[in-house]
Amino acid sequence: MANQPAIAIHGLTKSYGKVRALRGIDLEVQRGEIFGFLGPNGAGKTTTIRCALDLIRPDGGSIRVLGIDPQADPVAVKARVGYLPGELQLDDNLTGEAQLHFLNELRGRKADWNYVRELAERLDLDLKRPIRNLSKGNKIKVGVIQALMHRPELLMLDEPTFGLDPLMQQEVLRLLVEAKRNGATVFFSSHILSEVQAVAERVGIIRRGKIVEVAGVQTLINRSLRRVRIQFRHDVDPTPLTQVPGVALLKRDNGRAVTLQVEGEMDALLKAVAAYPVVDFETERPSLEEIFLTYYADERNSHKMEE
């Protein structure tokens, strides 16, 4: 069992009426890795996670979580998983501490309470305050703590940093890295590329219920397009720059400014640009949507070639 992937999903399908939410998901998450699950809103990230935890039942395909079929034995799966729902809702009548005690009771008192206090301190959360008085960000912190407090083998977190301020986002990402260092597998969904890039080793990209890519983060970045805007001191002929492999001219504002599209690493372009007097050099990371579009462009081209 220990050799099996932490999560193995094959041919997973799920429809809501006529809407096909998942259209044959194939995904494997290895033990001990941090896996980022990327996709825009409505792509099927939450549906996949909820299927894996038996909150909803798939129409087809198979799922194994830590080697167990979650439909056959959901309690065994959830005893070893820490889960943060995407739409987190807590009991407003309880304090943060009482909420965590209640959830710990459901876990059979498996939490390490010293660790809970440490997490609360690191996340700057006052556990004595009633949930109803907490901001959205502080509620998320309670959610993160409840997922981590029993030191689970597998963390399944649906948008764990959504609603947190940048400092706390960093702290949560550090906690995920620490959990991995302590032997846990981390599977988290996000639609923010930068945070996935910061901690994940591999990513899966989902769009419209289908996995369009599973790759190492570096591979993904190398494949992605960037937009580069260069302002020169005087008029420049951009032809040598456009001859650099992976570079295409998007726009020439006047003789002194060009906008280029760069695919892959920047090294060759930087060396080419070094020959000119540069006033300003701006790069723009592509949005997740743009990365998707490159995949879809590839997909369309391959369809055309097949035809």
Partner: peptide, 14 residues
């Protein structure tokens, strides 16, 4: 409908 059930059933209880 509030979303609390997801949190409850994310714990080891049938």
């Amino acid at each position: 409908e509030k979303g609390f059930m997801d949190l409850l059933l994310g714990h080891p209880i049938g």
